[in-house]
């Protein structure tokens, strides 16, 4: 059985290291916060201007002045710090954020990432994604390996407009974990019950040993 959304999030949480400052994207990456391993302290950055993002508030305690980058109401923690958007992206662009975990529409074997625009479809904008992939220390993407037609989203070259060029370090998909290395992608791990043949069949990108 391939991993489901929560299992992908739990696997992505294993990437976190104690003491890191991390930015989690919208969607499955947001779920990663639910699986932070015991004994690992990470500080979550929200690019709208906060370090130390806490959980959703209790009903009735929502604060319109306290939201995350997905515009959801959240809470603060004892070590929270607030700042403006220029400062927020200064720390992102300046490489102070150790890792970003983001969603992806397509990833290529050279680490190219496309996750913001489908030509001809409704374009909402890149938000902070281009800044994040250009600036943070390590980029991990969490994604389904194939689209709903069964076509690979892990490609030799992206077909969609890019969010960043050669920016992805690691892919965590429903089928397993792959690293971007010299010459292509290297299989790091298979999801429970997924065979290497299945993963290779679902991958258009070059897989190197």
């Amino acid at each position: 059985m391939p991993w489901d959304r929560n299992q992908m999030a739990a696997r992505a949480a294993q990437e976190l290291q104690d003491g890191w400052y991390v930015n989690l994207g919208i969607g499955i990456p947001t779920l990663v916060a639910n699986y932070i391993p015991e004994g690992v302290e990470v500080t979550l950055q929200s690019e709208n201007g906060m370090l130390g993002m806490g959980p959703f508030p209790f009903e009735g305690e929502e604060d319109a002045d306290l939201i995350n980058a997905g515009k959801q109401t959240i809470t603060e923690l004892p070590h929270t710090a607030y700042f403006d958007s220029a400062q927020s992206f200064a720390m992102i662009r300046g490489g102070k954020i150790a890792m970003a975990i983001l969603g992806a529409m397509e990833v290529a074997e050279n680490g190219d990432l496309a996750n913001w625009m489908i030509p001809g479809k409704l374009v909402k904008g890149m938000g902070g994604a281009m800044d994040l992939v250009a600036g943070v220390g390590r980029v991990v993407v969490v994604m389904d390996h194939t689209n709903k037609h069964g076509e690979s989203k892990v490609l030799k070259a992206c077909t969609l407009p890019l969010t960043g060029k050669s920016v992805v370090d690691r892919i965590i998909s429903n089928l397993g974990v792959l690293d971007v290395v010299e010459g292509g992608l290297k299989i790091v791990e298979l999801a429970d019950g997924v065979t290497e043949e299945e993963l290779r069949a679902a991958t258009e990108a070059t897989i190197v040993d």
Partner: peptide, 11 residues
Amino acid sequence: KRIEQRTTRKK
């Protein structure tokens, strides 16, 4: 001060 996405957790 309108809230765009009201997300909460149960007590």
